[in-house]
Amino acid sequence: MGTAGAVGAGADGAVGERRQLINVAYRLLGSVTEAEDAVQDAYGRWYGLPRNRREEIRSPGAWLTTVTSRICLDVLSSARARRERYVGAWLPEPLPDRAEWGQAEGAGTGGADPADQIVLDESVAMAFLVVLESMTPAERVAFVLHDVFRYPFAEIAGVLGRTPAACKQLAASARRRVGDARTAGPSATGRADVLRRVKEAWEAKDIAALVGLLDPAAVLTADGGGLAGAVPRPVEGGARIARYLAAVADQAPGLELLERSVNGMPGLVARRAGVVVTVAAFDVHGGRVTRIWAVRNPEKLRPWALESGPWTAAPRAPGGS
């Protein structure tokens, strides 16, 4: 697609596209694991082509991006059934900023953990990813490929099997959904200041202070996936959320709260006995917290394993080669 993959033909050019493909797939799927699986599948198809066919493809990156996007489209299309089987609310997998933990990123894109290859910008902010979840699969693919990665509609049409004009309409519809998520909020420093006060009030179990920091219409959504304790439905209202947070502090002695970036934005991480058990992302407007997304499902916290100890997962080679 376009010039994004024009780094040379053949296997070497294909291997060099891994980072870009992971970035595309994560934004399309909201899951590091599923993004890696989609990219692995695309590489498997690439290496499954006859050698002479691969050599005929002028831009391996364009071919791989198209295939990866189609795989993601299929995954998104089947997501509704899978989400219906999911226990409780489903949230995107949160991403850490390794630099904050004194962890160096893996050298090269082939050997790094997939989460380390994802560029942290506004297009992976939790508020943004949650809005993407409200889109139809076709809207999401058209919007992400065009508005985030700047692919032309003529090429997106090849992914979706629709006309360029239809793809343009899909992206426009998705853009309208995004509106509120892109409303300018406080600077990172301003957000961090609010969350620092939330952390202090939470640690002190100061319900009155928490109520003052939460918007009266705030909403907390927790994702435990049936593998960790979490409220099955969103908690609505600043006062109810404040009482819930205080109750959590009461029931979890020894819980350590840390100020850390979550998907590139200020957030809070909870550790117990040195293990990350909750990663919370926040939306802040008018000096108050309006949304909290708390991920507790341990399967979604694997990229945070470095915060608990050495990362030992062995990276997979592209396409299993």
Rank of each mutant, 00 (worst) to 15 (best):
A9G: 13
D12Q: 12
G16D: 13
G16A: 13
R19P: 00
R27Y: 02
L28T: 06
L29N: 04
G30P: 03
A35S: 11
A38Q: 10
D41S: 13
R45E: 12
R45A: 13
G48E: 15
R51A: 15
N52T: 14
R54M: 14
R58L: 15
W63C: 10
W63R: 08
L64T: 05
T65R: 13
V67H: 08
S69E: 07
R70H: 03
L73C: 05
V75Y: 00
L76P: 00
S77I: 01
S78P: 03
S78Y: 03
R82D: 15
R85K: 15
R85F: 13
A89Y: 09
W90D: 09
P94G: 12
E100D: 15
I118G: 11
L120I: 06
S123K: 05
V124W: 04
V131E: 03
E133H: 08
S134W: 02
A138F: 01
E139P: 05
V141G: 05
F143Q: 03
R150K: 02
F153S: 02
A157P: 10
L160W: 10
T163D: 08
T163H: 02
T163Y: 06
T163A: 09
R175H: 01
R175G: 01
V178W: 00
G179P: 02
S187I: 02
S187Q: 03
S187F: 05
A188I: 07
A188V: 13
R191N: 05
R196Q: 14
E200S: 12
E200R: 13
D206S: 15
D206L: 12
A209K: 10
A209I: 09
V211P: 01
A218G: 15
A218Q: 11
D223F: 03
G224Q: 13
G226F: 11
G229C: 01
G229P: 08
G229A: 15
V231N: 11
R233V: 14
P234I: 12
G238E: 12
Y244E: 14
L245M: 06
A246R: 12
V248D: 01
V248A: 00
V248M: 01
Q251C: 01
Q251V: 00
P253C: 10
P253V: 08
G254Q: 09
G254V: 04
L255R: 10
E256Y: 11
E256D: 13
L257D: 00
V262K: 04
V262N: 01
M265E: 13
P266V: 06
L268N: 03
V269L: 12
A270K: 07
A270M: 12
V279M: 07
V279C: 09
A280R: 00
A281Q: 04
F282D: 08
R288L: 05
W293H: 08
V295P: 07
V295R: 04
V295G: 07
R296I: 06
R302N: 09
G309P: 07
P310M: 01
T312I: 10
A313C: 00
A314T: 09
R316Q: 07
G320V: 08
S321L: 14
